[in-house]
Simulated scan of single mutants.
Amino acid sequence: MKITAQVEYGLRIMVRITRCKDEKGLSIRQLSEAEGLSANYVAKLTRVLRIKGLINSTRGHMGGYVLSKPAADITINHTLKALGGSFFDKKFCESHSGILALCTNSVDCSIRSLWSVMQITLDKLLDEVTMADMVKNEKEVSSVLQNIIDGNATGVLN
């Protein structure tokens, strides 16, 4: 599995916006400088995030980007799917049939089962993690994730 640059940088921008306490949000220039990305690339990512309903833009020359709803209501799963789609969906098999119209394994495919279970597992984990969790420090986020994996209180540190 490969995490694309768009997914990585888009998630980093979401974390920056989540951490911002200014009601006007962060501008493209501020996000660009903070993340070491070109302004054009930040503009592309913020456009995707805005179209997907994750952030809103504030108007004016001093405007910027803010979350569209509370951080605790934005799941990482929704964010990652907005930036790059699912790890696996059923259309995958249609586009990987080789030179044939249908995959030679379309009737009985053990690999499809593996990808499907991986997607279900990822969805379960990522649906429990929110942007509010992601603004914590690395140790705390690791603890949140471990609690979810262990089946303890969802997203809450003990």
Rank of each mutant, 00 (worst) to 15 (best):
M1I: 03
K2A: 09
I3E: 06
Y9K: 10
Y9E: 11
R12C: 04
I13M: 04
I13C: 05
R19Q: 02
C20L: 01
K21R: 01
K21S: 01
D22S: 05
E23W: 01
K24S: 09
R29A: 12
R29F: 12
E33D: 03
A34P: 00
A34I: 01
E35W: 00
E35R: 04
L37N: 07
Y41T: 06
Y41D: 08
L45Q: 08
R47D: 13
R47Y: 11
V48H: 03
V48L: 08
I51V: 14
G53I: 15
I55R: 01
N56F: 09
S57R: 10
S57P: 02
T58V: 12
R59T: 07
H61C: 05
G63S: 07
G64L: 12
V66P: 00
V66C: 01
L67K: 12
L67A: 11
L67V: 11
S68D: 02
S68R: 00
K69G: 09
K69S: 13
K69A: 14
P70Q: 12
A72R: 14
T75A: 14
T75R: 14
T75Q: 14
H78V: 13
T79R: 01
L80D: 06
A82M: 11
L83R: 06
G84D: 05
G84P: 03
G85H: 02
S86M: 04
F87Y: 15
F87T: 09
H96Y: 05
S97M: 08
G98A: 01
G98E: 08
I99S: 08
I99K: 09
I99M: 09
L100V: 03
A101R: 03
C103S: 07
S106N: 06
V107E: 09
D108G: 00
C109G: 00
C109N: 01
S110R: 12
S110K: 13
I111S: 01
I111C: 04
I111A: 03
R112Q: 07
R112E: 07
L114A: 02
S116G: 03
M118W: 02
Q119G: 05
Q119R: 05
T121D: 14
T121Y: 08
L122H: 07
D123Y: 08
K124I: 15
L125T: 05
D127Q: 06
E128T: 13
E128W: 07
V129H: 09
T130K: 10
M131R: 06
M131L: 15
D133P: 07
D133L: 05
M134F: 10
V135T: 15
E138Y: 10
E138K: 14
E138L: 09
K139G: 13
S142W: 04
V144C: 11
L145D: 11
Q146C: 12
N147D: 15
I149N: 12
I149L: 15
D150C: 13
G151R: 08
N152R: 13
N152D: 15
A153E: 11
G155N: 04
V156N: 11
V156Q: 12
L157M: 06
N158K: 09
